[in-house]
């Protein structure tokens, strides 16, 4: 059994230690916001924050995240309560097909948590690990700048919610999950 914090909740998972974190979250915990794109850590669709760092979870063994803090797109906000970046994404009409956008927002969150006034080149460096086949890059850049401005003005937060599902019946601290 491997235990870690997922969006503020402790979860215990029965899965082989070398199982990629992505599949534990998607199939064992059935949280589908984080996507599968390449399986080689090349495209960023599977990005989650591990202790605040944007990480490719399709190649991250679940045993390596024991006792660490994981944040997925669901942990940043939900349709009723979005984070500043998610709001900026909607305002700038960023998503096209939308499939890569969870990963884009996770990487942007990691960037703004370190730097609330990123230059174009800071943004390029932080976001170049996330491929978008629809080519939403111009609007991704615009949304990041808008969100950064909101944060600098004290009008925003990178995480709008602490717990993925406020209606979950499991106790907020521990959720047992079987494989």
């Amino acid at each position: 059994m491997i235990s870690f914090k997922l969006n503020g909740q402790t979860v215990n998972v029965e899965a082989p230690g070398d199982t990629p974190l992505l599949w534990v979250v998607r199939e064992h915990l059935t949280m589908k916001g984080t996507k599968f794109g390449c399986g080689m850590g090349l495209c960023g669709a599977c990005s989650m924050l591990i202790d605040g760092v944007s990480t490719r979870t399709c190649i991250m063994p679940v045993q390596a995240v024991a006792n660490r803090h994981i944040t997925t797109i669901e942990g940043l906000g939900n349709p009723q309560m979005m984070s500043t970046l998610q709001n900026a994404w909607v305002e700038a009409d960023v998503p096209q097909c939308g499939y890569c956008q969870s990963g884009q927002i996770i990487s942007a969150t990691a960037l703004l948590s370190q730097n609330n006034n990123p230059s174009d080149s800071d943004i390029d460096i932080a976001m170049s690990g996330n491929i978008c086949r629809c080519g939403t890059y111009p609007n991704v850049k615009k949304a990041i700048k808008n969100a950064a401005a909101d944060l600098r003005n004290g009008k925003g937060r990178l995480q709008a919610v602490q717990v993925f599902d406020p209606t979950a019946t499991a106790s907020p601290e521990t959720q047992e999950v079987q494989s």
């Binding site: 349709p79 979005m82 998610q86 960023v94």
Partner: peptide
């Protein structure tokens, strides 16, 4: 605004 932007920006 794109009507699918909220769903696609929240993983839902």
């Amino acid at each position: 605004k794109r009507l699918d932007a909220v769903a696609k920006s929240t993983g839902s």
